[in-house]
Simulated assay, not measured.
Amino acid sequence: MNIQIIEKVVDVFNHYGDVLRFQIERFEEVLNDAAFDMMDECYLVVLGMKLGVFEAMIFDEDFEISRYVTYLCEYASLKEEEALFMVSVYSQIIETIGYYFEIPDVEQFLKNAYQHNQFSHLYVLARTYFLGFGVTQDYEKAFEIFSYLYQQGVLESCYYIGYMYEHGYGIEQDILQAFHYYQTNVDSQSALRLGLFYMYGYYVEVDEEKAMYYFLQSQEKEAYLYQGLLLESQKDYSAAFQAYLKGAKSFQKECLYKVGMLLKRGIGVELNLNEALHYFTYGYYLLQEDCTYELSMLSFDGVVVKKDEKQALEYLHQAARLKSYDACLLLSQFYEWGRYVQKNHQYALSYYQQAQVIKEEKENQYEII
């Protein structure tokens, strides 16, 4: 299945208006015309709209991809691959279009919640302002409400207060205060942040043992990625694979890539190119650039999939658009040599420059996210 269907759907909405999603039969007709060479993808996009999945995701404040995939597999009898593709496509379309809706009378709702000390309502409203979900995003107001809740003993506020202190959202940046709040209530999210602090020495000394301790307390899917990175740096590849695998099962896209690469190389696990292809494909659906590059290489090699240079080039160009350093560098060489493509020095230079920009961004990127 081809992730280019995302562009087709966005183009259709831009041309006909977003209200077309409420006219399912008309939308299906228009999309089939626009993406006539992607009938399977069109079918899944339309099916999900008929099932109400697209609308549900628009209004889902706590979107979690695995929840939707499980639902579609159990109640719509979709294969996991089909469900993941559908949900990922919708997620990217929603992010691209930027749906916005307003919660009516939110200020009155907030006033009443304060007056009656309805802490659960205040917590929901604080998160609403923090996320910008149904209201204009307002970190200062979110900080104000979370701080009030903290003073009232609602410790679930600690993560959000810490996060805003850490990044200077709604309050002047203060890393020590962030660290204090994360430690005050070590829930799943705070544990992930503390693990990252110790892993990368972010205003504390690097301590891999403490980092792992906190990652193991977190149920966030990203925690599995950092567990794997720590274990891999310690050359415990078997344990690293198992950590990455847990993240991959939750569709954490970097974990999907890591699992695929270890399977491809037979490091920490028995070499299995068919399984590697499976994880690279899932990562591709989630727009993971290196997974897309690996699919290109497999299509060029023709080992576990049919050798298909046209498909390989399509993956390679998609990987470059997703900012894969390796893809940009290889395309630069292809256009320089005239291999698989017509020789074009201007394209060669452009892809080489893109590769260097990506390399610099990765070198300068601070790994705390």
Rank of each mutant, 00 (worst) to 15 (best):
G98A: 06
G98K: 07
Y100V: 10
F101K: 13
F101N: 05
E102V: 13
E102Y: 13
I103K: 15
P104W: 07
P104Q: 09
P104A: 08
P104T: 07
D105K: 15
V106N: 11
E107R: 15
E107M: 14
Q108L: 14
Q108F: 02
F109G: 01
F109T: 11
K111I: 10
N112L: 06
N112F: 07
Y114V: 13
Q115L: 10
H116M: 15
N117P: 03
F119Q: 13
S120K: 10
H121M: 13
L122M: 12
Y123R: 02
V124W: 09
L125R: 03
R127S: 10
T128Q: 13
Y129R: 02
F130P: 04
F130V: 02
L131N: 08
G132L: 08
F133S: 09
F133Y: 15
F133L: 12
T136A: 08
Q137R: 15
Q137F: 03
Q137I: 10
D138N: 12
D138P: 08
D138V: 04
Y139H: 08
Y139T: 01
E140Y: 05
A142K: 01
A142V: 06
E144Q: 08
E144R: 14
I145V: 08
I145D: 09
I145E: 10
F146R: 12
F146H: 09
Y148E: 05
Y148L: 10
Y148A: 01
L149N: 11
L149G: 01
L149F: 10
Y150D: 13
Y150T: 01
Q151G: 09
Q151I: 04
Y159W: 05
Y159Q: 07
Y160R: 04
Y160E: 13
I161C: 10
G162L: 03
Y163K: 05
Y163S: 06
M164R: 00
M164K: 00
Y165M: 02
Y165F: 09
Y165W: 03
Y165H: 15
G168N: 02
G168Q: 01
Y169A: 00
Y169N: 10
I171A: 02
I171N: 01
I171V: 11
E172D: 14
E172N: 14
E172L: 04
E172A: 01
E172Q: 04
Q173P: 07
D174A: 00
I175K: 12
I175C: 07
I175G: 05
Q177K: 15
A178Y: 01
F179Q: 15
F179P: 00
F179T: 03
F179A: 02
H180G: 00
Y181L: 00
Y181A: 00
Y182V: 00
N185M: 07
V186W: 06
V186C: 11
V186R: 10
D187H: 09
S188P: 10
S188M: 11
S188L: 06
S188V: 04
Q189E: 12
A191I: 07
L192I: 09
R193E: 02
R193I: 03
R193H: 02
L196E: 00
F197A: 02
Y198A: 06
M199D: 13
M199E: 13
Y200N: 04
G201A: 10
G201C: 08
Y202H: 09
V204Y: 07
